[in-house]
């Protein structure tokens, strides 16, 4: 049973015929935490807006909870929770008033589904009489999540919920998502942070409106195939410039404090790279085998 199915959906904007979403297809299983991973402008928000019936697709079809997003939009609105990327609750209403309002427009109350939001709400409860506009970024996200959950949706759409949130709050937020998933809610979440991809059950890598791959993070990483090394030296800029000239490397790029070098020849060892660098006047470079991350996979997909 799928919570969300998307078939060849396309969205074109404006007179310039800007293709934001290009024949995208994927499906989300019931109770799955599904991630749309891609950089800014990849079309993530457009997909969310179509699935939450705010935007009509130009072609293709999609269902949410088995309902067609065009024909049965009313039924979808009753059963999904949507948290837009931009904070869009009433800033001039208090935390409690916002929650109460969104509960009532779905014909329910805070008490009925309190169980669902309890873990999250207790964290913002001390500020329940504060105006939403005066909350900190992390609190706003928590409140927005509460408001999206208060009517006990079966599918939850979260558009970049952790963008602009500090690392601690981000971690907390993903913990909350895991707990929600445990309650049987299907969650579709988008993020530009590749490190968050590992926290999803399955992810769709998306770039320029096109899906690059839909898989579990493990399978995507397992399918990487190339050998990956992390290299570090005192002068990183020179190191990166030098690595570009390493003809055995498929690609090399900055990755945190290291530079990642990918090779499709598994006979090459760390010592070979060291030797190459030494020959180019970079001594004492640290070369270690690196674990493949989603970001490495994404960069590889982009190269192809």
């Amino acid at each position: 049973m799928f919570s969300v199915t998307v078939n060849d959906i396309t969205k074109v904007y404006g007179k310039e015929k800007l293709v934001a979403v290009d024949r995208v297809s994927f499906s989300v299983n019931k109770g799955e935490l599904f991630g749309l991973i891609g950089p800014d402008g990849a079309g993530k928000t457009s997909i969310f807006r179509m699935l939450t019936t705010l935007l009509l697709p130009d072609s293709g079809s999609a269902t949410v909870n088995g309902y067609d997003i065009v024909k049965d939009y009313r039924l979808i609105r009753n059963t999904v929770g949507y948290m837009p990327g931009k904070f869009s609750l009433y800033q001039d209403l208090t935390v409690e008033e916002n929650l109460h309002f969104f509960a009532t427009v779905f014909g329910t109350g805070i008490q009925e589904n309190y169980q669902l939001i309890k873990d999250i709400y207790v964290q913002i409860e001390p500020f329940k009489n504060r105006r939403a506009g005066k909350l900190s970024g992390g609190m706003k996200q928590k409140l927005a999540l509460c408001c999206a959950l208060i009517h006990k949706p079966t599918v939850l759409f979260l558009d970049e919920p952790t963008t602009g949130v500090d690392p601690v709050s981000r971690k907390e937020f993903w913990e909350m998502l895991k707990r929600l998933k445990a309650q049987g809610i299907s969650i579709v979440v988008s993020t530009p942070y590749m490190d968050e991809a590992d926290l999803c059950d399955r992810i769709a890598l998306i770039q320029a409106g096109k899906i690059l791959s839909v898989e579990t993070p493990e399978n995507i990483k397992a399918g990487y195939g190339d050998t990956l090394f992390a290299v570090k030296s005192a002068n990183m800029y020179r190191l990166l410039e030098t690595l570009k000239n390493y003809d055995k490397a498929l690609s090399s790029y900055a990755f945190g404090e290291y530079a990642h070098v990918s090779l499709n020849d598994n006979k090459i060892h760390a010592g070979d790279i060291k030797q190459f660098l030494a020959g180019r006047n970079i001594q004492e470079a640290e070369v270690i085998p690196a674990a493949v991350t989603i970001e490495d996979c994404f960069i590889k997909f982009l190269k192809n």
């Binding site: 939450t52 009753n78 999904v80 837009p84 869009s88 009433y90 969104f102 427009v105 779905f106």
Partner: peptide
């Protein structure tokens, strides 16, 4: 402008 209309639009209102 505040985006709240998006939030309203996904409700059954």
């Amino acid at each position: 402008e505040a985006g709240t209309i998006e939030q309203i639009n996904v409700t059954p209102i």
